[in-house]
Computed example of a mutant assay.
Amino acid sequence: MELDKILSQGLSSWNIDITENQQNNFKIYMDTLLEYNKVMNLTAIEDPEEIYTKHFLDSLSCLLVDELKTVGLKAIDVGTGAGFPSIPIKIMRPDIKMTMLDSLNKRINFLKEVGARVGLDNAEYLHSRAEDAGSNPKYREQYDIVLSRAVASLPVLLEYCSPFLKKGGYFICQKGPAAKSEVEQAKKALAVLGCSLEYIKEIDIPYTDLNHNILVIKKISNTPKNYPRKAGKPSKEPLI
């Protein structure tokens, strides 16, 4: 299937329109991803159609969440890796002020190159561990939205991500079929970190058999000062 149609028809099924310029930016993104993937580990998916479905459309499913529809949001993608979901979202929603955080500088350099090639404005590329940036007053409790498609368990992700959220902000977390059991596992973390699960949105990704879940978690009180704990501690001793 033509790559343009995968995006245009897939997004149309979600009542989202895409421009020719945005289509071109996704092609540039894919080409840059495949170019850099030859020399560094960015993605195990190298088939163009699968990049469009399993990376681009999957990332863009976040746009179906009502909390992301406000204009001019300030967002951060924690553990962004190769830029998912932040860069696809930023291409479609240039009004969002997007910070992309990753602990590996070579990935940050890749993201800067993508941003330069597709002309991303209001984008920040942050080389840091989540635990360190979340304790920094420049970033702590400064964001309306935190995004994550990272593979850590929900209790760990909550400790990484919730410190960045303003009170009243939302953590939009992409998870697979085990999302509901992860929420059960994260009850303590939610309570300790001042968060509350608002709802789970089930998503079918067009042209795949993937059934994903988006967790929408609200920050209801400020993060206690002793969180996040020092680098490495959240993953070694999760709040469960």
Rank of each mutant, 00 (worst) to 15 (best):
G115P: 01
I28C: 03
I76C: 03
I18G: 01
A133T: 10
E35Y: 11
A152R: 02
G10F: 11
I76H: 02
D31W: 05
I16P: 02
A150S: 07
N136R: 13
S135E: 04
I91D: 03
K54L: 13
I18R: 01
R93P: 02
P137E: 13
E35F: 10
K112C: 00
D102H: 04
V114G: 01
T99H: 04
V71K: 15
I91C: 08
D102W: 04
A123N: 13
V151M: 09
R140S: 10
I51M: 07
T32I: 11
D77N: 09
I87G: 01
E46S: 05
S148R: 12
D66W: 00
L11M: 09
R140L: 13
F26M: 12
T19H: 07
D31S: 10
P94S: 09
K138M: 14
L42W: 09
A150T: 10
F110H: 04
L126H: 12
L64K: 09
V39A: 10
R93V: 01
D121E: 15
M98S: 08
D132W: 01
E124Y: 05
I145H: 01
M100H: 08
K138W: 08
D77E: 12
P94V: 11
G115H: 00
G10M: 07
T53Y: 08
R117F: 03
R129Q: 13
D66S: 11
T99K: 11
S61P: 06
L63Q: 05
I145L: 02
V39L: 10
K97E: 14
G83D: 08
S103M: 08
E50Q: 15
E50V: 03
L60F: 11
T80Q: 13
D144V: 11
I91A: 06
H127I: 12
I87S: 01
L120P: 00
G134H: 06
T43C: 15
P88G: 13
N25L: 12
Y143V: 14
G115R: 00
F84D: 02
L111M: 09
K90Q: 12
P48N: 03
E20S: 12
T99E: 04
I96E: 09
I145W: 00
F84Q: 11
R149L: 04
N37V: 06
F84S: 04
K97V: 15
A130N: 13
P85H: 01
K54F: 11
Y36C: 06
L68Y: 01
S128I: 03
D17C: 08
K54T: 06
G83Q: 13
A116I: 02
I28A: 01
N25Y: 06
Y143R: 12
K54V: 08
D66Y: 02
L104M: 14
K97H: 15
T32K: 08
I16H: 02
R140A: 09
V78G: 14
P88H: 08
L154E: 14
I51Q: 09
C62G: 15
D77K: 14
L111H: 04
I76F: 05
V65R: 00
I108Y: 04
A133Y: 07
N24G: 02
L63T: 00
T99M: 10
Q23T: 03
